[in-house]
Design a protein around this nucleic acid. Structure first.
Lengths: 347, 347
DNA sequence: CTGTTAGCGCCTTCAG
DNA sequence: CTGAAGGCGCTAACAG
């Protein structure tokens, strides 16, 4: 009978989203009955329920989740994820893990990229809180713990992932950076290497700090001095790393071994070494240890050992910690710290 | 003067989010004035405005964006992104591009992973519509165009990214798969190769279909028959590809050249070839062409040509197309198709 | 089992 | 320049 198509508007008949009322009118019931059907159909006569369901399916109605979450006691079903750079396969893996676990609870993730920018991080944090996220998983940019205080976050649960922040009393999931780096350095020392380069990122990033700490502690353990000329920090990307590695290779007494503190740094270092070998300027490539794995670790053009771990697993663990706060199973336990084990792989 | 801390509740004083009313009470103004200040402070006495702003900053209030978007005419500031698998560096790049462009407009992205599951895709689509996304960027799973009809999407603008769908009248951004694959095949044919393997993914995925089409058309152009025994389709991951490649290498007359239709397939193929070379079972590795680039393309253990393109750029273009629908600058233009150029790189 | 009332946080409209 | 009223879509709580 007449137009059964889109919305119930009059003139162009579009743009006005459908509501429970529209469904109620078409189905000739009250909005409340529609609402009940939408929430599972308890306490609704089966025949009626089916009728309403048919109408809903026919017009392709979707309940407005935002309006729904406005009611007190309702959850938004949103989890905020703040990553420095999704383009980095490592963090992409972390997001994948988070999404997997979070989606299994019917929640969705809101993703923001901080691009290592502290101001942007603060802004995104604020925005996400405004969007009523139930919880947050954050790879923090700097060391400003204040912004992560429960007060600032209005008691929205937070899990720090991959990196931590000094004074932030939040749950955190880290890689066991210290042990991984120490073990790698110890292996190189046992192999007899003394001139060992350390290619690291910024020490304001906790992973940078922790990996350097582990590296140094292996040297301390063996009573060997770290050759400070071979410690290069602040490398932000593969290009910077490649450049730094090239420089090191031209030293009068170049390093016989190299520790690369993350995947981007490894890529750059490998490029520099492979090229130096190819053009004959280096006869025997330095022994290389890489933190984090990457696609072609097993096919690298030079021998390589990897301090490996699974970014997706880190994401999953972080998400589970967050969920345990949301469902109350970890009510007021105080900040928890998980350090995921690494395993060393020789290629 | 007494407790100035958290919310205004009485007993445990937590869990109840702050509202404009709370701010209004503290600032001793009406909620309307707070609202005005939040929207830029027009039509508010500067002194008063500053006062309210101070209160807002002090208590760390964030406007509830969900309630805000409930008002008619207000936008949710949400863009839905549906990706098959964020863990794949290629799609991670796409998401990065989308996020970059979308975030610049103050909007945020809701990310869902379909995991190549058509049902999950439909469910996520429905969920995102319920969350009032203003627009969608989707890497579609199958060929069911119905679910992407304007009616089903309630006129929410959609851009298909990387892959397309037959009967979906939506904007789409693709790689120029056909030309890229044709060019690659033509090069191999010109080099004199006749036994050329094609390692492809599912043909129900448009990239798979298009790349195979381009491949075949180069053969047709040169009057050469494709050796169908060397055409392997349906490869879902690097493992499957490695296995397929290994099989091909053991043929009595193995391929002298190989076309790998995407980055995961390339990784598997390279592994298989490199291993066969290493263990001596293959003397001279086949010539390899890879669609999509990856981290170590320039350092691959065997000679390699790449049909390269930038996933982040694809994401940016897709996001810009979407935004042009949102701000009305591309009002009712009908479905647009963009095919991004590829460039061939020899390593 | 079904409907009515009321209100979540915000902002457009209209008075003052 | 400021405030009061009303309603966006939805659903608890309370009738019937």
């Amino acid at each position: 009978m007449g137009p059964m198509q889109g919305s119930a508007g009059s003139a162009p008949g579009r743009k006005t989203a459908m509501t429970v009322k529209d469904i109620a009118r078409v189905a000739e019931v009250s909005p409340m009955t529609v609402s009940r059907v939408l929430s599972g159909g308890k306490n609704v006569r089966p025949a009626l329920r089916e009728h309403v369901e048919r109408v809903i399916a026919e017009v392709g109605y979707h309940r407005n989740e935002n309006a729904r979450s406005l009611r007190p006691g309702q959850r938004s079903g949103l989890v905020g994820v703040l990553i420095t750079n999704i383009g980095n396969p490592y963090y992409a893996g972390v997001v994948q893990g988070i999404e997997q676990v979070v989606a299994a609870t019917g929640r969705r993730i809101l993703v923001g990229t901080t691009n290592e920018d502290s101001d942007l991080e603060r802004q995104l944090l604020s925005d996400f809180l405004g969007r009523q996220v139930e919880g947050l998983v954050v790879v923090p940019v700097g060391q400003d713990g204040d912004r992560f205080s429960a007060a600032r976050l209005h008691d929205v649960p937070l899990v720090l992932a991959s990196r931590t922040v000094e004074r932030a009393p939040a749950d955190a999931v880290l890689i066991d950076d210290v042990h991984g780096a120490r073990e790698a350095a110890a292996i190189m020392l046992r192999e007899g290497h003394r001139r060992v380069a350390f290619l690291g990122n910024k020490v304001t990033v906790s992973t940078g700090q922790r990996r350097l700490t582990g590296f140094r502690s292996a040297f301390a353990d063996s009573g060997t001095a770290v050759d400070e000329r071979l410690v290069v920090l602040g490398l932000q990307d593969a290009e910077a790393s490649e450049h730094a590695m090239r420089e090191l290779l031209t030293l009068a007494d170049p390093p016989t071994a190299v520790f690369a503190a993350n995947n981007r740094i490894s890529v750059g270092a490998i490029r520099a070494i492979a090229r130096a070998v190819a053009d004959g300027s280096v006869a025997v490539p330095p022994r290389l240890f890489a933190f984090d794995s990457f696609d072609f670790a097993d096919m690298a053009p030079i021998p390589l050992s990897v301090i490996d771990h699974d970014p997706a697993e880190l994401g999953r663990v972080a998400a589970r910690m967050l969920l345990s706060r949301l469902d109350g199973s970890a009510a007021d336990e105080g900040a928890r710290l998980v350090e995921l084990p690494v395993h060393i792989v020789h290629h």
